[in-house]
Design a protein around this nucleic acid. Sequence first.
DNA 1: TTGACATATGCCGATATGGGCATATGATGT
DNA 2: ACATCATATGCCCATATCGGCATATGTCAA
Lengths: 124, 124
Amino acid sequence: MARAATTLDTFNAIAEPKRREMLTALAAGGGELAVNTIVQTLGWPQPQVSKHLAVLRQVGLVSVRRQGRERMYRVNGEQLRTVHDWAKTFEQFWSDQLDRIKQRAEAMASGGHIPPTFETKEKP
Amino acid sequence: MARAATTLDTFNAIAEPKRREMLTALAAGGGELAVNTIVQTLGWPQPQVSKHLAVLRQVGLVSVRRQGRERMYRVNGEQLRTVHDWAKTFEQFWSDQLDRIKQRAEAMASGGHIPPTFETKEKP
DNA sequence: TTGACATATGCCGATATGGGCATATGATGT
DNA sequence: ACATCATATGCCCATATCGGCATATGTCAA
């Protein structure tokens, strides 16, 4: 066993840049878009578009409706709300930013020593 | 070429369930946590923890600080804010939900026919 | 029914990824 | 200098995933 069950969940679905692009395209399209329209808009091979749509469909990020021989896709917000809410859980970790800077300033003023700086990105 | 440059970005980093779990653990830990603490908390093999931390570090989801022989990790909100904001872009697609239901109700009342229902999940 | 159009699927090859293990690197105390 | 603790890396295997191509499925029109 290896490569741990990516479980095909929402987070995994939006991990693909192209899939995010598709969602954006769909959102920009306002209502619903036919597959062919997406193909022309993004300029990707049709099977590729269909496959990515399949993934988005499986996790419920988009919904489909048949209209004649076309299939109209539309963004399904629910799942995205999940992502939104999850990220929001960590809100304090970016809104506290100001407080932390303030703390540092205070520490310098009183204690005199500079609190350690955190490395955020990787060192080359 | 294949398997398209997963580009090791933020979205990809949080696609891993274990990585999300780590972030949650870090957040729950309040301030900063040493690797060993995380290892004991989650009960995963140490190398695994270090590797996942490395990924989170590379995309700037966590920051590190050296304290003696320990390395204190802390959540770095910035990157999560990115995710939050991106998802929020689609807000209308879940807050409009009510309006859509209303529309449907109205259509039924006046026109008499039921607007098509969208399939959200896959058919078995 | 036949043909054209719209979309989904199956199969393939290339590759990145996660887990497991052993080991390297780094810091501390004696 | 040495032993020990804390963490990071390298290597290997198994597998899921993406892209490309050919083809199946489904729908409408004549």
